[in-house]
């Protein structure tokens, strides 16, 4: 199967600091792939390259076989911190991507309402971000990204700031939405359990600098999944042990370096 997104020998350097070096990674269409690795291993850098926010110093990114130039037009990016507009209501925030595409406000709001109901915020349409909890703001962000219909979803530790219950709720929500139309997902996290519970495939990055993938594990767990329950299955624990074996060395190296 032809890959949807492909990193080819991608190297990114910031001045003298080489964040990632020689990364080659191919994502099949509809695959949910997680990147895990110790802090500072360049996971977010790879996401920014995939989004087109950052041009690789060497190598290239192919999107459906063609080199990516400028912003990635089919990507939706959910950032680690809130990136929704604080001066717009939840409804207007979600309607905005449609307005940017020339949809009139009335229709855009109508469709935004549907999306907010989908993420469980039907009663908070007129709320401003500061009136919402962290989890709710994440839902607004998710709806805002998804309403534009991206084919590729880039997620940078989107749930790391949430408490554990909200986090599992959001993870299940994400899986449910993803199940509907199976976008290609590149999910960055430092939480191995989250990565295994969500993904079809987990890629382990080495400690930075000059970080690169050092392990690639398929996750053959059945879907649909419940992220809280699946953590207790023997298969999950086996995978966790196997991947952690590799990851632990990198985490220790990152610690020693820092």
């Amino acid at each position: 199967m032809a890959s949807f997104l492909e990193f080819r020998q991608v190297t990114v350097a910031f001045g003298d600091y080489v964040a990632v070096e020689g990364v080659s990674l191919a994502l099949a269409p509809g695959a949910f792939v997680s990147l895990v690795g110790p802090t500072g291993c360049g996971k977010s850098t790879l996401l920014n390259v995939a989004a087109g926010l950052l041009a690789p110093s060497r190598g290239e990114v192919l999107l459906e076989g063609r080199p990516l130039k400028g912003l990635n037009p089919v990507a939706g990016y959910l950032f680690q911190q809130d990136a929704i507009l604080p001066w717009k209501t939840a409804l207007d925030n979600v309607a905005l991507p449609l307005v940017f595409r020339g949809v009139p406000w009335g229709e855009a709001r109508e469709r935004a309402r549907v999306w907010l109901e989908k993420v469980g915020l039907g009663r908070f349409l007129r709320h401003y971000p500061h009136q919402l909890s962290g989890g709710m703001r994440k839902r607004v962000g998710l709806a805002q990204v998804l309403i534009a219909g991206p084919k590729l979803l880039l997620m940078d530790e989107p749930f790391s700031a949430l408490d554990i219950q909200t986090r599992q709720l959001m993870e299940n929500e994400l899986l449910r939405l993803w199940q509907e139309d199976r976008k290609t997902v590149l999910f960055v996290t430092h939480d191995l359990e989250e990565a295994i519970a969500l993904s079809d495939r987990v890629v382990v990055m080495s400690a930075g600098p000059r970080s690169r993938p050092i392990g690639d594990f398929p996750i053959p767990l059945p879907r649909p999944r419940d992220v809280a329950e699946i953590r207790l299955t023997p298969e999950f624990l086996r995978l966790h042990r196997e991947i952690w074996e590799l990851l632990r060395g990198e985490v220790l190296r990152a610690h020693a370096g820092a």
């Binding site: 990635n72 990016y77 950032f79 911190q81 990136a83 929704i84 507009l85 905005l96 940017f100």
Partner: peptide
């Protein structure tokens, strides 16, 4: 971050001026 997000969501320069 808000600026990058708006750009990725498809905002053109006039949108950025008006909404950001």
């Amino acid at each position: 971050l808000v600026l990058q997000n708006a750009r990725l969501l498809g905002a053109k320069p006039s949108h950025l001026l008006r909404h950001v």
